[in-house]
């Protein structure tokens, strides 16, 4: 299986922050959820991937090519960033005309049909768009130049549940084509739980976990018990721990626990929360 994205030992140093040795890959035809708290380095990773910032070291391949050296690969990469990036005085029609000269594979008819489908008024100025509309316009653009890889940075945050659901439906539809892939960065883990095949979890610039989402969710569980009861659990299977006055709740590797324990299903949010805020004692790498 070809990889849509390959990061090898990617590193970016700032005076106060380091994105450290990121290595993972996204197989073609899959959706990768890129999670982490605000400031974890998600946007920095995306910028380094797209060549918007100079990486300190490491290698980035998008659809098998280094985008820094082979700009042509960006013909097949669609972007939806956290903030809109289109000229505010333009409307969707004039934007489409300008972009038809930027992308060789621009499909005017597809663009018109996406505008219609997303209920974007073609002659309304972009500065008057809501955030949801701006996101849909970005998506319409990304889908109209026959992108094989979509990169979305916090595209769902700030959207109402209906708009978010619409967006996820569109991504799900996009991924039906075998060679299409999606890299979706978000701190709204519920969205990723719905559609992601793989999850990469970033914390303070370091990759905490990368792997299949179902495996991760299947492996982890939430154990609620007293501090005394927890002593019966081998510390290496406790991934994170929160203490409160009624006892403890712990993120655990559920298949390694004694049978008498009842474990609840963990969500991506739990995994993120316990990994970031949880007691590190006895914590092993995910």
């Amino acid at each position: 299986m070809k990889n849509a994205i390959e990061l090898k030992h990617l590193r970016k140093e700032y005076p106060t922050f380091v994105l450290d040795d990121l290595t993972f890959s996204l197989p073609s035809g899959c959706i990768l959820g890129f999670i982490g708290e605000n400031g974890a380095g998600k946007t920095t990773t995306i910028k380094a991937m797209l060549g918007l910032i100079e990486k300190t070291s490491g290698e980035v391949l998008l659809l098998g090519k280094p985008p820094h050296e082979e700009k042509s690969v960006m013909e097949e990469v669609g972007l939806v960033l956290d903030t809109g990036f289109f000229p505010q005085e333009m409307n969707a029609l004039s934007l489409g005309k300008a972009l038809s000269y930027v992308y060789r594979n621009w499909d005017k008819e597809a663009y018109s049909s996406y505008l219609l489908r997303f209920q974007i008024e073609p002659k309304k100025k972009i500065k008057n768009f809501s955030r949801g509309m701006t996101m849909k316009l970005s998506l319409a653009v990304a889908l109209s130049h026959k992108a094989k890889l979509l990169i979305l940075d916090e595209a769902t945050s700030g959207l109402d549940p209906v708009a978010r659901d619409d967006l996820l439906d569109i991504l799900f539809e996009f991924i039906q084509e075998e060679e299409h892939s999606v890299f979706l960065s978000s701190h709204i883990t519920g969205d990723l739980e719905k559609i992601a095949d793989y999850v990469a979890f970033l914390h303070q610039g370091k990759l905490v976990f990368f792997g299949e989402k179902d495996v991760l969710l299947d492996t982890c569980g939430i154990l609620k018990c007293t501090a005394q009861e927890l002593e019966a659990v081998d510390p290496q299977y406790i991934l994170g721990l929160l203490r409160h006055k009624f006892g403890v709740t712990a993120l655990v590797k559920k298949y390694y626990l004694p049978k008498e324990f009842t474990v609840e299903q963990a969500t991506l949010e739990d995994i993120m929360l316990y990994s970031i805020k949880g007691d590190k004692s006895g914590k092993v790498a995910l």
């Binding site: 918007l52 809109g84 005085e89």
Partner: peptide
């Protein structure tokens, strides 16, 4: 100025245009 203000630089520098 507008390119900077609206974020167009991000978009165009991540496009096939050099």
């Amino acid at each position: 100025h507008y390119d900077k203000a609206c974020g167009w630089n991000k978009f165009i520098c991540a496009s096939p245009i050099s």
